[in-house]
Design a protein around this nucleic acid. Structure first.
Lengths: 362, 362
DNA sequence: CTACGGTATTTATACGCATTACAAAACCGG
DNA sequence: CCGGTTTTGTAATGCGTATAAATACCGTAG
């Protein structure tokens, strides 16, 4: 069908360069290695001869062959369990990928997006079919709300270098990750609420104990137990905003913290609809911030997504190079508190009115 | 350093499968090929034996080796001359990539982003260093406002399958591309302007004759020559909005078409600042539309970016498979006219007033 | 002048797979 | 039962590179 022997289209190989320079292919390989690493294994005379031949022929290395022969391919995999570009997930992945791309560009790495992985229930699987493609990459960045515990185990067992963005844990070993440092950030936000005079602060969020973001929930519980007037009020966010708000009122809360941008927004809208002013009557703080710019200046803390993406690649580089220390595989990054406009001083009397009455004027 | 011979971590190969199934490695390869292509080269008996062994060992093919051995890697390259995720370029690339990703997902392909390509003047170069990585991919999608003519030539000469998004041409041969069909769309928009009663319609845009988007300029010229009251007014957009607007007024234009979203927006803002109403006093139509959602409902036409991305991958697939006909390598896709709110009936008298006077009331 | 130690270079091999060429076997009509 | 055709399996080879092992080289000490 297609004659590969057709010299006009075949790409230049090390053997071609070697022939031209009058040396062996291995020498060409050594020269290239010495050019990149700096350490010399070949005489200056031959090095110049070979580099001249390289320039003359326009030779470029074949990363495929490089990788197969046991070297690096210069590719970093990016695995997401949902489409990167399409759908609403876009706004979730994007901020991280900005940092990932920047780091990759800096390091001269290319990115491999595993869009072709087989899917179950609309979600990508990494193994079974994704692992197929994994071998091209020197390492891999894992990213996504959902994840498969078996994937993690298999990855650890295969000793394949990878870094998760977001904290993950596995029985099979230490999962390398970069993640927001939720604990102090959550404390800071709660401290801010206390400073505003709030005592009755509720937690609105996903109460499923298996949740990834249970750090925030745990910290809230601890803080309320030691500082609050009461042990804390937990409101399940998987219902409707109106039910959530009703529970807020029933519990006479003056402030709530949420672990989810969407909930915060819906709650605020629902409150305003019922004539409850934010923050005069009810303070709302996010334990995080919106992925994309929001017209509302939310009180909460900033998750440094760009930085996380960047640092994930850096950590991955260390893993690949083998220069990472085993006790520094899980890295947390500080989140600055945002003293926005959705939280303010607590009202003098708790907002215990029903939806028909107005909140207390200051 | 790292013992690859360590059986516990080494990945399963065809040879391992073959040993277990009691056949040769070549047979395993044939079985796998027959599984994918359907065409049988091996008896049912052996096929089941081999597939059983595959299931048992959890074997997955190594695309690196596959590619090196002359097969497909299942990777499609995506080359952009600017960062994909970061900066303002994001909004430009993103809509196309939605379609690209969707197509890749459908076909079971993975995407390779050439973020590691060497850069000159902040812009990526494909050759010299980008070509280095090209060989991993079965084909490549090219995307970007800027491009290097030499890259195009080299790509054509190397017979490497690629598709440009956006029309491009080269002396070295036919450049495969998918692009918006600007000609009829531009005619449609101008027809709409005529239908609204405009006669004095100007063209605001980049007048550099080397521009990629000169199709729209050419069509404008042709249409005005045959239909308009006058041969057409060309206004260079690379100055300030106020200068552009002044030229619009000086030429007593009642409508302008622009080839650039940004210009249209600035022109409209400038007009409103001077008390010139859009569209009552001045109609503005875009020869295109905004990449991202805009609060303004612009008159213009819709560039099907998602579809273009999708179809680019389809065309690339045909190129890779060798099933594309040589006279169908450049594909244009229709753009639907948008009869928005920035263009309307022409004012009875031309808007020739200075900036101090109001436009004519209807 | 020989032997030796170290370095420069080459030879040989492996990486995992596809593919070609070929041998063996099975099939088939006469 | 035989020559010819088709099917089925295998051995051999190559893809382009890295690297371990082997060899050639070269200066120097003995």
């Amino acid at each position: 069908m297609e004659k590969n022997a057709n010299a006009s289209t075949r790409r230049v190989t090390q053997a071609d360069v070697a022939r031209l320079a009058g040396v062996s292919q291995a020498t060409v390989s050594h020269v290239i290695a010495s050019l990149e690493s700096g350490t010399s294994r070949v005489s200056d005379k031959l090095r110049t001869k070979v580099t001249e031949a390289i320039d003359l022929t326009g030779y470029v290395v074949n990363p495929i062959a490089q990788r197969l022969a046991g070297g690096r391919s210069g590719f970093v995999g990016v695995f997401t369990y949902e489409p990167i570009f399409a759908g609403e997930a876009d706004s979730f992945y994007h901020p991280f990928l900005v940092g990932v791309e920047r780091a990759a560009e800096t390091a001269g790495w290319n990115l491999v997006l595993f869009t072709g992985a087989a899917k179950t229930e609309g979600r990508r699987r990494m193994l079974a079919d994704g692992a197929r493609s994994l071998s091209v990459a020197d390492g891999c960045i894992l990213l996504g709300l959902h994840y498969d515990a078996r994937d993690l185990e298999a990855l650890l067992n295969e000793r394949f270098p990878f870094v998760f963005i977001g904290a993950r844990h596995s029985d099979a070993g230490t999962v390398p990750y970069v993640a927001p440092d939720y604990e102090p950030a959550t404390r800071d936000v709660l401290d801010l609420m206390f400073a505003y005079g709030h005592g009755r602060i509720g937690y609105v969020g996903d109460l499923n104990p298996e949740q990834v973001n249970n750090v925030r929930l745990r910290v809230y519980r601890d803080v309320m137990r030691s500082m609050g007037d009461q042990p804390g009020v937990f409101i399940d966010s998987t219902t409707t905003p109106s039910i959530v708000l009703q529970q807020v009122l029933d519990n006479r809360l003056t402030a709530v913290v949420t672990d989810n941008t969407g909930i915060a927004g819906m709650l605020r809208a629902e409150a305003q609809e019922r004539g409850i002013r934010v923050p005069e009557d009810l303070s709302i703080a996010q334990l995080g911030d919106a992925e994309i710019a929001d017209e509302v200046d939310w009180t909460g803390f900033h998750i440094p997504r760009d930085e996380l993406g960047f640092e994930a690649v850096r950590l991955l580089a260390e893993l690949i190079d083998g220069t990472s220390s085993p006790d520094d595989l899980q890295r947390l990054f500080p989140c600055a508190v945002i003293d926005g406009t959705t939280a303010g001083p607590a009202p003098r009397t708790p907002s215990s009115e029903t939806s028909s009455s107005r909140g207390v004027e200051l």
